[in-house]
Structure formats: structure tokens, C-alpha cells
Design a protein around this nucleic acid. Structure first.
Lengths: 352, 352
DNA sequence: CTGTTAGCGCTTTCAG
DNA sequence: CTGAAAGCGCTAACAG
């Protein structure tokens, strides 16, 4: 089913058929109607590859994500896909599993597919070989979730958000607040969140215990359970993401601790599911769908202007503290100090 | 960066460059090495659109899914994407939000993108206009999750699986088991699962109470809470999917019922998260990633043989009952039949 | 307003 | 083993 067939059957030239699809007002209404009906009859659809070859515009966006198994990225992709579809663009998503080689391969594959630009969530913009590849090729791109002054990024302020989370826990009266994270080196987000944690602890006048680093999610529950059984356990856990927080809640239960009565757990991401759990998960909500949507829009806007997005185009999206039900005052304060004891001196300094 | 540039720089014809990439053994090793080095130096990548136009093979698969917000589909897409990538195919996913018009638009968009074939999860194969469109166009496709004798499908036996779930609950001693589902008309899966529920109830010699149909997930919790507060409430709930089951657990807590002591909750899908919750969600596991993977492989295999997948190619994948912790004997039996061990100190929740 | 024509970059006979 | 040449289907000047 080619443009030629339509032209023949309608008794016009292929140029006219092309115009009917690309510049309808340049065609006499009568001719247009004729061509349109013939096209519909034949079920004609313009060939995307021919069009791409001729115009050098594929109207395809590449997307590189760590995984779809984390709902925050799935939601992001959904927002991104919607924005792209609305603007007549298709997307080709690739997942990397947080693997640096995979990131690079993904970029190469996308490059070979002639995507016009890419939205990527990478491990670390600072050191990314994939990004270097992209820049060498001069392909427009926007980073999502990542945040770095040298690139165009759409993200929340991880550091400020984490500090807020800590402030919230401190305001509840917690003094022994520990942070739980995946491998720090694995992502700039983790690092930023950890810095925010430290800043928040400092602002609250608290000593930050060593980071609880969980190399693989599979071992998270066991590692945490152990830590929670040890003496001088924290009364609150700030987790680098909601998936980890959910595991922390589980670890607490396995250790015989109730959440939030014995242990408060705070997450990060704000996955929709967290709000349906019991207890509802306290977390920092980031607008995942918006991150995807805005990143796509930013990219497409730049593409339309024949330019690449620049760092100055970066967007800092608002986050929000979701209180949830998994955070409450620590055990030793529940008797006499129900609310907001920020300035109170603790009577018992924990070891460590 | 075109093939011509490489040919010029290497001092050979474009045909030779093409052969180096498509039939390396038809080129003298020396020439090949030369061309390869030049190509690498120039960062040459063959143009996908030109290739597609010439060969009439895009090596792109279209994917139509209800939503990525349900982890089962996200996981499916991940498996599918991986299989496609391994075979050198890209995927273009589109979501429909369970909307029939959107399904049709998605198929049209994909058709216009010249995908070689599609994997789709649709509302109902029986009545799908989108499918009709596809067949008219003779584009190969495979259905995933759906199950219908007239189409090539990759799915589990929803009916048998649901009956098993009911049998499990009945074996625990439950007699008042109710099923919770989204709008039945919305998907063939719901209908099959409901049939399985009825069959299971029948096999257990139990009367099936009316289906609890929840039109929108947003109202699920309220609707369920109400139902659980009414007299003659069920002692076990079989939910059409895990997302619904998680809400059922929440509704139970809000109604002052403990899960599983006062109410058993069983889901369907086996999303990974369910196994991390407290209580761990009892459910029917279906191999989501495999469904995606096998569907993609099936489709690509057919494509390679220049044919469309047929109903006889359909795959019935195994499901598995995941016991979890959210199911236990009903309250009135707990005196003589001890509950399953929950390691946590279960505490009565306040009614709200 | 409509038609003619020249490629976009590549694969693939067909010669040599 | 290598090259010349013919399009794949379409868009965008350019003529008329």
C-alpha cells in the first residue's frame, strides 16, 4: 500500500496525495476529499521509514531507564509515553538494570534506531560513558531523576527533600535516625539523598550513625533485621526509596518491632502503592509521571527548535512530604511527649 | 554519516561497505578490516529507516498494554523488552488505560509506525475492534494475558487458577468466601477468574455470594470497608488482582479486622511486592516476565518464518499458588485449628 | 492548485 | 571479490 497506489486510483499525482496528508489546505477541497476517500478505502498509511528517510525526522524518542520493576520508573515512563504520544512521537524504552555497560549499549542501540533524542535515567551523570557517547554524537537528551549542573535535568531536589524527611522525624522526637540505602556509588540520587540526610541530621543537632548500605535488595530484609536486633538500634529509619522502606517495615515485623510504635520508617519516591499499605508509608513524594512528562516535553520543544536542551533548561520539580502512618514519636517519648519536641534535650544519649 | 562517506574514505564502493555489515564473509578479510576501521573512526551507524525502507523489515515490535501502573504489566513489558532486545528488535509500547477507543488508536499508531508485529493485552478478544483492524491489515500479533481460541495467546489458565485459590481458602475452613473484582465487562481475565471462582465454590460445595464489583480502584477501599462492616460479612476475600487485594487488606484494617486472623485475603497476579508486605500476600503467581518474553519470542519466531502466529501456537503458562500470610483459618475455627505462624506480635488495630 | 523530479541511505541483483 | 545501478516510499523544490 504505497502513495503511488493511492495516486493512481485517485487519478492524481503522488505529490497531491502527499499534500493531502502534510498540507491539506494546499489542495482543492474536492481533490482532497477524493484522495482521502481513496486512501481510506485502500487503508493507506504513509510509510514511517520513507518519511523518516526523506525528512530526517523519525519522531521517535529513546528512553533509558534502570528498571520497570520500581513503580516510580514505570510511572515516569507512563507520563513520558503519554506526552510523547500527544505530540505524535513514539518512544523506544530500554532498561539497564543499573548496569553501566548496559547504559552504554542502550545508547548505542537507540542511536542506531535514529531516535531524535533521548530521555535517560542513568547511574551517575558525572562519570557516564553513555552520556559522553551521546554528546559526541550530538544527539539531544534530557536526564530525568539525575541532577547535574552540566546537563539538562528534570528532577526534584533530593538533598532538600531528604533533609525535610529527617526534620520531620526529628520533630517527632527521634534522635537515633539511621539511613538505609542501596549501594551509594550506584546512583547520584542515593548520594544526594545521603547528603541531605547528613545535612538534616546536622540541622537537628543530631549525630548521624553510619549509613546502612544494602548491596542487593534481596538481602535487605535480613541485613535490616539484624541491625534492628542489635543494641542501640535506631528508632527511625530513613530509606533511600520506597521499595527499601517496604522491606524495612517487613524487617521490623520480623524483628518483633511494631511500625510505627517501636520503629518509624520513612521512604522516598512516593509510589502510589505506599499509600494503600497498612501502615500507609511515610515518604517523600516526587511527581514521577510529571518528571517523565516534562522531560519529554522539554526534549520535544528543543527538537522543534532544532536545538539540544541545555543545562539552563533544567527543571526542578516540587516534592512533598507524605506523612503516612509509618512514622510516629519514638517509644521513649510516647508517654509524656506527644508532639513536636524539637528543642528538647534528650535525657539518654544512645551509645554510638 | 552515511554509507557513502565510509565508502569514500575507505576507497571502496558502498556495496562493499554494506556487505561488511550484512554479509561479512563475502568480503576479503583485508577489505573488511579496512572498512570496519574506517566505519568505527567515523562513528558510522547504518540508517535504520533506509534499511527498513529497502528491506521492508523494521525490526520493531509494537506493544499494547492497559497500564504500567500495575506491576504485573510493567514486569511483563520488562520481560518482553529483554527478549526483543536479545533478538535485535526494538519495541514501541503504548498504554490504553483499559479504554477500547485507546486500544484501537494504539493499533493504528503502531500500524503507521510499521511495526512488524504486535503483542497486545486487550480488554476482550471477543469484541475487540482493534483486533479486527489488525487482522484486516494482516499484521502478525500475539495476545498476552488474554485467552481466546480464535487467537494466538500467551497466558495462564485463569479459571483453573482461581478455582485453586478458592479450594485453598475452603481447605482452611472458610465457608463465606466472596470475590472482589473490577468491572467484569472490562476484561476477559476478570470474567475467567470469576468463572473459576464459581467453579471452585461449587466444587467445595459452597454457595457463592454476589460478586463485589468495584468500578474504580479509587473507591475500592470505601466500598469494601462498608461491605466488611455489614452483617454476614465474608471471612475470606478472593480478589481479582493483587492491587485490589492490597486495598482489601487496607479496608479490613479500617474496619477493625485483622488479616488474616479475622479476614483472609487472597490476590491474583503475584506481583513481587506482595511478597514483601506484612502480611505477605497470598496470591496466584503468574509468570509475568515470562508471559512477555514468550509472547515476544513466539511473535519473532513467526516473523522469521514469514508467517503470522496462529491459535495453535498459543501457550498456556503455569501458575502457582503462593500461600503468603494473609490467609488463615476463619475466626470461628481458630479455637481448634491454630493460625499460621505470624512472627509479628499482632496487635488489634483501632477501628476508624 | 497540481505535476515532475531529485534524492534521503541502504540492499541487492547483475556484471565483471 | 567488488562495483554499478535500480529502486524501497516519500517530501519538497520547482514548473506550469
Amino acid at each position: 500500500m504505497s502513495i503511488q497506489a493511492v495516486a493512481d486510483k485517485a487519478g492524481v499525482s503522488i505529490a497531491t496525495v502527499s499534500r493531502v496528508f502534510n498540507a491539506p489546505d494546499k489542495v482543492l477541497p474536492a481533490t482532497r476529499a477524493l484522495v482521502e476517500s481513496v486512501a481510506r478505502e485502500l487503508g493507506y498509511l504513509p510509510s514511517a521509514s520513507a518519511r523518516t528517510l526523506r525528512t530526517q525526522r523519525s519522531r521517535v524518542l529513546g528512553v533509558v531507564l534502570p528498571t520497570l520493576l520500581n513503580p516510580t520508573f514505570a510511572e515516569c515512563l507512563q507520563g513520558l509515553a503519554q506526552a510523547a504520544a500527544e505530540a505524535g512521537h513514539a518512544i523506544v524504552p530500554l532498561t539497564t538494570g543499573y548496569d553501566l555497560d548496559a547504559e552504554q549499549r542502550a545508547v548505542d542501540q537507540l542511536l542506531a534506531r535514529e531516535v531524535e533524542g533521548m530521555v535517560l535515567v542513568i547511574s551517575n551523570p558525572q562519570t557516564s560513558a553513555a552520556l559522553a557517547r551521546l554528546q559526541a554524537r550530538q544527539r539531544p537528551y534530557v536526564l530525568a531523576y539525575n541532577r547535574h549542573p552540566a546537563h539538562c535535568c528534570v528532577a526534584v531536589d533530593n538533598e532538600a527533600a531528604s533533609a525535610e524527611a529527617v526534620a520531620h522525624l526529628a520533630a517527632l522526637g527521634h534522635r537515633r535516625i539511621a539511613m538505609v540505602s542501596g549501594t551509594l556509588a550506584q546512583s547520584d540520587r542515593s548520594q544526594q539523598r545521603h547528603r541531605g540526610f547528613l545535612a538534616g541530621m546536622d540541622a537537628a543537632g543530631l549525630d548521624a550513625p553510619p549509613l546502612i548500605e544494602v548491596p542487593f535488595v534481596e538481602v535487605a530484609v535480613d541485613a535490616l533485621r539484624e541491625r534492628l536486633a542489635a543494641p542501640g538500634r535506631p528508632t527511625a529509619l530513613f530509606c533511600s526509596n520506597d521499595l527499601l522502606a517496604i522491606r524495612a517495615v517487613r524487617a521490623a515485623h520480623l524483628a518483633g518491632l511494631r511500625v510505627p510504635q517501636d520503629l518509624s520508617v520513612m521512604g522516598f519516591d512516593g509510589i502510589a502503592l505506599g499509600d494503600e499499605l497498612t501502615p500507609r508509608l511515610g515518604t517523600i513524594e516526587q511527581p514521577a509521571a510529571d518528571i517523565g512528562r516534562r522531560a519529554a516535553q522539554l526534549l520535544m520543544a528543543a527538537l522543534d527548535e532544532q536545538r539540544a536542551p541545555v543545562p539552563a533548561d533544567s527543571l526542578l520539580l516540587p516534592h512533598r512530604l507524605r506523612t503516612g502512618e509509618s512514622c510516629a514519636p519514638p517509644p521513649d517519648m510516647r508517654a509524656d511527649e506527644p508532639t513536636q519536641p524539637t528543642t528538647t534535650k534528650s535525657r539518654r544519649r544512645p551509645a554510638r
